[in-house]
Design a protein around this nucleic acid. Sequence first.
DNA 1: ACTAATAAAACAAACGTTTGAATTAAAACA
DNA 2: TGTTTTAATTCAAACGTTTGTTTTATTAGT
Lengths: 240, 240
Amino acid sequence: MSASSNIPTPEPAEDGRERRSEETREALIQAGVELFGDYGVQGTTSRMLASASQTNIAAINYHFGSKEGLYLAVAGWIAERMEERLRGARESALKILQEGPPNAETAIRIVSNVIDHVAGLMVDSDEVRTWARIIVREQTKPTLAFDILYRERMEKSQKNLARLIGFAVGIDPTSAEAKIRAHALMGQLLVFAISRESLLRALDTPKLTSAHRHLIRRILKRHVEACLAVKLPDAKPSVI
Amino acid sequence: MSASSNIPTPEPAEDGRERRSEETREALIQAGVELFGDYGVQGTTSRMLASASQTNIAAINYHFGSKEGLYLAVAGWIAERMEERLRGARESALKILQEGPPNAETAIRIVSNVIDHVAGLMVDSDEVRTWARIIVREQTKPTLAFDILYRERMEKSQKNLARLIGFAVGIDPTSAEAKIRAHALMGQLLVFAISRESLLRALDTPKLTSAHRHLIRRILKRHVEACLAVKLPDAKPSVI
DNA sequence: ACTAATAAAACAAACGTTTGAATTAAAACA
DNA sequence: TGTTTTAATTCAAACGTTTGTTTTATTAGT
């Protein structure tokens, strides 16, 4: 498309070296998302990455400096894709908020919708659950990648959710209570992404049916709404 | 103490070889609990295990056959200790159940107590959170150790909780709904053990204060009670 | 032709495991 | 009881393999 132009076109490069190079990087990152999530950084070997991405061992160091460098790139890639996946729910929620502070009823409805959207990702999307493996590894033992994931994505999500919960429950969105409540509610969703194997064994099924998934989302929705209706008794309304 | 006796005493061995051998095994398992949780099986080297346990590299293979063998022994050890930690709460709950099926109010009180007990472990006990790292690793990518952890401990806990939830909500304890609800409620607790770093950053504190821990448990207690009060509307009361 | 990118081969370092000698508590014997 | 024999355990050294990375050569777009 840009062949007739004589400008250097450092950006897209429809075909040629730059294109091929970008394809290699993308293939390595894709392999990294899968393998790092399954086997961890140390458990994933350079040869596994090269084989899965159908590239050469040397490509890892050529494009990312080191295996660790590829891992950090994978973390950044996941942060970006999470951003995309959550954008819709976040923007529609923020749009309502811009019309002024919502009443409790409206706030609960927004939270319920946002949570249901996230629940859908955790329950239905194999891709998101693959990302979740890496995120959970970083949660239990943070490395440099945790900073990337936290600062680029999780911090904002956490703050937005705490803000909504503040409106819904009628408490300070920056209070410890709002933050802890947000944490607890997210846990109720996360467990369906990370403890999938326990759930499958409990339900005695090799994989979730669509009926299962539907039931999970119904339960989560009602649980979250019930939690948001809870008001903590007077004593220490927002400790620390 | 048993020196004057001439029976072989193959069991206790107050002092001597058997004692020393047992100490070595215990030291290796302790090192394994810490290191496997932090770095995973592949990420933990034989030399790290030998150094942390103040033993020799060869001791791993001598006592457990291989590094993998030690890992499985660690999984079994964790399952046993979890059993001990949960015994009190479980027995007091089962005692009440033996007096006949409880009414919903009683069942909710029992669940609330059990959950609060578990929440205490997740929030307060550094030891339990260390175990949780290994358990979570197995959840995201099950290995042979998952079978040990699941069959020896998690399956029973899951069934007991689902049973209680059945009484509390008034549904079949073996239904998918009861199992999924148990899963969701446990997730609300688990997240405080595994996503500790996110929580600390959100609360902007290097470590949880006792006020934080108290608040977390109050919130979880109220959340769980609120969730148990939820009844799913008619359609598909116990699908699958 | 030049150069960015890929591929193959080679590297030292670190890996899990094995070996064999040094210990040392217990059993056997005197 | 005192001594020797036996066997379980510990330890240092070494094993062959695999690791992440680097080097060198080849390919292919500009």
